[in-house]
Design a protein around this nucleic acid. Sequence first.
DNA 1: TAGATTGTTAATCGATTAACAATC
DNA 2: TAGATTGTTAATCGATTAACAATC
Lengths: 210, 210
Amino acid sequence: MVLEKIDIPRKTVYRLSLYRRCLEKLREQGVETVSSEDLARSAGVKSPQLRKDLAHVGQFGTRGLGYGVDALGDAINGMMGLTVFQPVVMVGVGNLGSALLRYGGFRKEGFEIIAAFDADPAHVKTTTEEVGVPVHHVDDLSRYVADHGVRMGIIAVPESAGQEIADVLVGAGVQAILNFSPAVLNVPDEVVVNQVDLAAELRSLCFFAG
Amino acid sequence: MVLEKIDIPRKTVYRLSLYRRCLEKLREQGVETVSSEDLARSAGVKSPQLRKDLAHVGQFGTRGLGYGVDALGDAINGMMGLTVFQPVVMVGVGNLGSALLRYGGFRKEGFEIIAAFDADPAHVKTTTEEVGVPVHHVDDLSRYVADHGVRMGIIAVPESAGQEIADVLVGAGVQAILNFSPAVLNVPDEVVVNQVDLAAELRSLCFFAG
DNA sequence: TAGATTGTTAATCGATTAACAATC
DNA sequence: TAGATTGTTAATCGATTAACAATC
């Protein structure tokens, strides 16, 4: 089966995830209908942008009325695969990795980090209870991912280990990677990487704070 | 005085910060000269992109030879304001904020978070020693920023408080904000916001992990 | 029906890439 | 000089925005 998902721009996918969040909030507030104008504003984009984004994936509105909050929310959840539980592995339990695990904000968003991995045997033993997630040795990463059918991984290892870990994840079947290391990852075309370089974000802000 | 910095594209500034990091590594390795081809590859971009980016800020290379690692590194550091110490404040010491403080990776990159703030008096008392940074009540934020001439702030508060905190920071003189809250911040044109929405990053990856 | 708002096409804008003359 | 590589201009590409016909 061919996934036609391929030709939706990355940025559109990202914004769809923003819209979903706004719709969730509206749903909680009991709002039943929303216009592209209002939804766009709450997501921080222009309304033609929102309509264009939605046009990539279908037709969900009623002219003259707007969008059904429930219907559009469900549609986005469905096409983004947010209705099914997504298990995630974290690789690297150093400063950043353990901070992210303790943060715990991912769970609230419907993700569960089911296991963490580290190359340092000392970390493996001591951090398991500290971070509230079982920590295994990185040697077990490949088998674990394959056995549990894990499709998403978070990389929080030093730059020097980034590519190696990415290779292991991809080899074991991971399709999407959130990379917090500054390493530039080389992966096959069908694998998607989102890179978040916290240091680079701060460094680049420096330019404007001059 | 007019800052001509204004008309350099954001993405170019971000990439300059990537180049700087690569140059730093090359410098440590004792490399003296690097071509746009090699430097671009190590930063994960194409070489014309790199040359175009550099063209925005000046001429640093020697045709036929490449770029002097030291000279280009120093030049980028200078124009990005990375030579002077940049004090930063963290607002929000909940899950994410305290995780980021304990992470400590910013200091290694030349930034120091000199103070943190929270609206919950309980947090103020209990977290100070836990995160290794003095934590004040958010009521003191404005004065502190003004008194210490702070120009950069990190927001790690719940969405509901995001805009309010941004207003306080901007009012007190902050020029650049790293926003980890999902709130869409409204700030004056001269203030720059980099938004990092960890949950949205993960959610959007879900689409590809389907 | 009249007013509102979508879905979509066309126009604009900006960013990336290709190509090459300049020049070390 | 010949080979290499920059700096820059022109071409391409994609994404954003504007505009409006379709239609509820």
